[in-house]
Computed example of a mutant assay.
Amino acid sequence: MSVSGLCELCQTNEVVDGCDRCGRVVCADHYDRPTGLCTDCLKEAGGRPTGEEDPVPGDGPDGVDTYEF
């Protein structure tokens, strides 16, 4: 895709590609190449950008996901 201008999400970086879902043109920081989605659409779909690690179990704030009776 040949596009030019500023990223529609951060308004600072140069555009590299467009989201296959919403059509926004975004920079490399806001585009997940394997899925073809911008980071906003990827979050809405319940995914994580490629290379981002899964959260560590038990790494929640103050153990709120653990209940002991």
Rank of each mutant, 00 (worst) to 15 (best):
C7G: 01
P61R: 06
R33E: 13
T39L: 02
A28Y: 08
T66D: 07
V56M: 13
D17P: 02
G36E: 05
C38N: 01
G58L: 12
E14R: 15
A28V: 10
R21K: 12
T35G: 01
D62H: 14
E14L: 13
K43E: 13
P57W: 03
C38M: 02
P49A: 06
T50L: 05
E14P: 09
D59C: 12
R33C: 03
G58W: 09
G63E: 06
E8Y: 05
A28F: 06
V64K: 01
R24F: 11
D20R: 15
G36N: 03
G51K: 07
D65K: 09
D20A: 15
S4N: 13
G36H: 07
S4A: 14
Y67K: 04
D40H: 09
G51N: 11
L6T: 07
C10E: 03
E52V: 15
D32F: 01
R48S: 06
V56Y: 10
Q11C: 11
Q11P: 00
Y67A: 09
L42T: 02
T50S: 14
G23E: 10
V25Y: 04
S4W: 08
R21M: 09
D20Y: 13
P34H: 05
G5V: 07
T39M: 02
P57L: 06
T50V: 13
C27L: 10
D20L: 14
P57A: 10
Y67V: 12
P61N: 09
D62Q: 10
R21Q: 12
G18T: 13
E14A: 15
G18W: 10
E14Y: 09
G47C: 08
C27N: 03
G51T: 07
P61H: 05
G23L: 10
V64T: 04
D17Q: 14
G58H: 06
C27D: 01
S2E: 15
S2M: 04
D17H: 13
D40M: 09
D62E: 14
C7V: 02
L42C: 02
T50R: 09
T50A: 14
P34T: 05
L6P: 00
T12R: 14
G51H: 08
A45W: 05
G47Q: 04
R24P: 00
C7M: 03
V25R: 04
A45Y: 04
E8G: 05
